[in-house]
Design a protein around this nucleic acid. Structure first.
Lengths: 160, 160
DNA sequence: CAAGATTGAGGAATCAATCTTT
DNA sequence: AAAGATTGATTCCTCAATCTTG
């Protein structure tokens, strides 16, 4: 018996694999919902973030969406090529680019969001009651914030 | 006001983005923990699955790990090249391949698992108390099973 | 030098097509 | 025809290096 190195409980391992699988399952449904609009999940999340907060920098998007800066650059390239967003110069800092949703982008987001949300709603509502959803949300929040904290302590690592 | 099309509540949307972010955050930590062993997360999960159930078919691995069959083929290629697993002929069905862990593979898994679990343990324990973890696990389980069910109803879609 | 952004190279995952066996 | 598995082409993402500006 080893008294010195407490091993991870089976509960935690199950949790992790479960989170992983749930992510994959949700991702699978998302891709199906967004495909008719020609959007990947990453592109969709960028549009959503821009809708919430206009004129973000690429670096800000990288931090919020937990993607490498180069990934964001390429996603914006695609979206701009499709006429959904536009890069704008930053008056205060000539290094930075501000990204703005075009009318076409806002329109596409609006339509995609409807389909995406309905599909998500069906799947989650079938699984959890409203009180359970609230309870679930609270636990996710707690875990999320804690993970972000430990990430910060190690020096930003996701998007170098 | 629109009485006909109930939209998704903000709660559900927050949940989804939270799950997505948590996945990315955990994945980031995993990659750091497994890199010294030369393993990706997908490879690690294959080894784990083979340790639990010996001699699985590639198709079975594809279904359990929610990855496309071609993805599994390539992961097994890599693991076999590194001498961690071996493809074995199936006596009953000459189309099928049974995958088995080699002693080297079992050994590497053992060592990687220790580091991976400790790293995960630290991060999750810092976030949730033991009762919370148990509560969390129950909700994840419920959501997971429900998502699998709705996936099955739509005809297998993840790995065509 | 540090920060914002981009580019090239490489890995990982998927789709569609193909081959063999049932 | 259908199932198990593989291959080729393509997309997505990341890392490391680079360019410009603060």
């Amino acid at each position: 018996v080893d008294y010195q190195k407490p091993r991870t409980s089976a509960v935690i391992l199950q949790q992790y694999q479960m989170i992983h699988d749930i992510y994959v399952l949700l991702d699978d449904g998302d891709r199906r919902a967004l495909r008719p609009f020609g959007l990947t999940m990453a592109q969709y999340r960028v549009l959503e973030s821009l809708h919430t907060s206009h004129g973000q920098r690429l670096t800000t998007l990288s931090e919020r969406l937990l993607r490498a800066k180069s990934t964001i650059t390429r996603i914006i390239d695609q979206l701009e090529r499709d006429g959904l967003v536009v890069r704008t110069a930053d008056d205060d800092d000539r290094r930075a680019q501000r990204v703005v949703l075009t009318p076409a982008g806002a329109d596409l987001l609006e339509r995609a969001r409807g389909v995406h949300q309905d599909a998500l709603n069906v799947r989650v509502s079938a699984a959890l009651s409203v009180p359970e959803q609230e309870q679930f949300r609270a636990l996710l929040n707690k875990l999320h914030d804690s993970l972000v904290d430990t990430l910060d302590e190690m020096g930003q690592a996701v998007a170098p």
